[in-house]
Simulated scan of single mutants.
Amino acid sequence: MCRITFQRVALIKEYGKRYQFDRDICSPDKAVQVFNDVLHLNESDVERFAAIYVNNKKQLVAVHTLTIGLIDCSLVSPADVYKIALLTGANGVIVAHNHPSGDPEPSQDDLCITQRLAKAGEILGVSLLDHIVIGTNTPDWISLAEQGYI
């Protein structure tokens, strides 16, 4: 007998009344606000990798924690990121992860995964809009799109 597993993807409209933020994600500042208010990336003592999924009007569709790692790393694959985009009908994704050290400076691994995600998104027709690195217990963060890496 074959065993079938089910994934439940919670859309932001199911929980929209719990959070007070603008649904339009038109800047990295707004994305950081969602990552911090909903998923508390700026408070985590382990590295977490998460994504915000948006429609073609840059309106929030879903927010999802993809991986929870160790104190200094979190592994993620393009399949992890784009599975939710395909399930929700999103055509844009903003990913973020935190650095528990507090220093949001991107590592070489951060830059490599950004390039892999961008290439995978091109193939799937889902744009990687940004990769944001958030410092834990600090207001500091860095947008890799603003830095020219995307």
Rank of each mutant, 00 (worst) to 15 (best):
V95C: 15
P28K: 01
V126Y: 04
Q33T: 00
A85V: 00
D45K: 06
E43M: 10
I12D: 02
E43H: 10
K57C: 09
L70A: 13
S143I: 09
L66E: 12
D80H: 11
V81W: 09
D37I: 04
L124A: 02
V46W: 08
K83I: 10
G92S: 11
V32L: 07
G16A: 15
Y15V: 15
V54A: 04
W141H: 06
P28Y: 05
V63F: 04
Q20D: 13
I142G: 00
H97V: 14
V34G: 03
I52M: 09
N42Q: 12
V63R: 02
R8V: 03
L75R: 12
H40L: 11
L70V: 03
Y53H: 13
L128K: 00
C26K: 14
D24A: 13
P104W: 05
H40F: 08
D110S: 03
C26V: 12
K17H: 15
D24Y: 10
I68E: 12
L60E: 05
N91E: 10
S27V: 05
I84V: 15
H40E: 09
I134H: 04
F35C: 00
N36S: 04
I134E: 00
I94V: 14
S107T: 15
S143N: 02
S77H: 10
L111D: 03
V38Q: 09
L128M: 00
I68W: 02
D22K: 12
F49R: 02
D140C: 06
E47S: 03
D109I: 05
A31Q: 02
Q115W: 07
D110L: 02
I25V: 15
P139S: 01
G121P: 00
N42D: 15
E105F: 08
F49P: 03
R23A: 12
V34R: 03
D130F: 01
